[in-house]
């Protein structure tokens, strides 16, 4: 029982990441009708916002300590972050909490990147076939990842989580199990709660604001909304920016779990497309449900009891599920009639 609960928690935090990326992907597809293969790159760019933020606040002064020498005979260099020099203990706190704080950098940066991407490139492909949209956005993803590789290098750059959120929480004790029976890393719980919060915020924004109402109307019937004198294109551009922000935030908060590298986006892209297809093209609740469903299935497939019966199932479960769902429900779990069927 404890083992099943632990795998469930693991599935929820994995599923959180899948759902956030798939949500952004679906937002773009639902509003603009564009299949955006550069969406994974947006997740990666978000992660590198956290790297950049940490780099900026840990710019350091180097002093030489003549009392200590290295094994190769030079004086030992002592490095002190400028933030610590200027703000003392507050500087140290700032550095410690750099990952959550980098959200403040990521939101405007990702919004701008999203809007520039849409206005600069993707709008020229609205009326082109999906195959061309896929090619151009895939090319864009490669360009973006090569830019990041040129600036940050090819290797992962690890990001520390705040000291207070390191270690594991005794989840078992909270739900009445014996102490220590079910522990789970604190940051992974934070990630799950964070992704749930962002998903709720996106749905709330679309459901309860006038802007969201217009966007939903546009998604249902773009032409009629346009005839009513509403500049739906401008709103859709902002939605593209919003989708970029959602992917970016998913990337920022993921950095302590997995040190970001330039091709991280591609690793997630394939998975999130499967999530979108399983959930149903263009369906926001479908993307979220499928994200969590596949995360949980992947996690359970890694259990030794399952792997002893079906070796290697953990590697293929996501794709196997996609095959089964598409055979049984060709439009995906929450797919709408007519979506990508013309």
């Amino acid at each position: 029982m404890d083992a099943i609960l632990a795998q469930l928690l693991n599935g929820l935090d994995k599923g959180g990441a899948y759902a956030l990326i798939a949500l952004g992907l679906t937002l773009v597809f639902g509003t603009l009708g564009v299949v955006n293969f550069a969406h994974g790159a947006l997740f990666m760019l978000g992660a590198f916002c956290a790297v950049t933020f940490r780099y900026l606040i840990t710019l350091e002064t180097v002093t030489v300590d003549p009392t200590q020498t290295t094994a190769w005979g030079t004086a030992l260099e002592v490095r002190t972050p400028l933030a610590q020099t200027w703000f003392g203990d507050w500087g140290a706190v700032l550095i410690d909490w750099s990952v959550p704080l980098s959200i403040l950098l990521a939101i405007p940066v990702m919004l701008v990147i999203g809007i520039v991407m849409e206005r600069g490139l993707i709008k020229h492909f609205y009326k082109r076939p999906h195959a061309e949209q896929i090619l151009v956005t895939f090319g864009l993803a490669i360009v973006l990842q090569e830019i990041v590789k040129a600036i940050f290098g090819p290797n992962p750059i690890s990001q520390a989580m705040p000291t207070a959120l390191r270690g594991a929480a005794d989840v078992g004790a909270l739900i009445g199990l014996a102490p220590g029976a079910l522990t789970y890393p604190l940051w992974r719980l934070v990630y799950f709660l964070f992704s749930a919060g962002v998903i709720a915020a996106v749905f709330g924004f679309l459901r309860f604001t006038t802007f969201g109402m217009v966007v939903r109307a546009g998604m249902a019937d773009r032409e009629t909304v346009g005839l009513l004198g509403i500049n739906i294109d401008r709103r859709f551009t902002i939605m593209f920016g919003l989708a970029a922000v959602v992917a970016g935030l998913a990337g920022v908060m993921y950095t302590p779990l997995l040190p970001p590298n330039y091709h991280q986006g591609m690793d997630f892209l394939v998975l999130s497309f499967v999530v979108v297809v399983v959930g149903g093209m263009g369906s926001l609740p479908g993307a979220v449900a499928a994200g969590f469903l596949l995360g949980i299935l992947q996690s359970f497939a890694s259990m030794n009891q399952i792997k002893s019966i079906l070796p290697g199932i953990d590697q293929i479960i996501i794709y196997l599920t996609a095959v089964v769902i598409l055979l049984v429900r060709p439009r995906g779990l929450f797919g709408r009639r007519g979506m990508m069927e013309n």
């Binding site: 083992a3 935090d13 522990t183 890393p185 997995l258």
Partner: peptide, 23 residues
């Protein structure tokens, strides 16, 4: 105990680490 094989470059090993806790 029965060994668990993981792919090279898996990145996130959490799904393989979770079963260790109650093994």
């Amino acid at each position: 105990l029965a060994p668990v094989r993981t792919p090279v470059g898996a990145g996130d090993f959490s799904q393989y680490l979770t079963p260790v806790l109650n093994s």
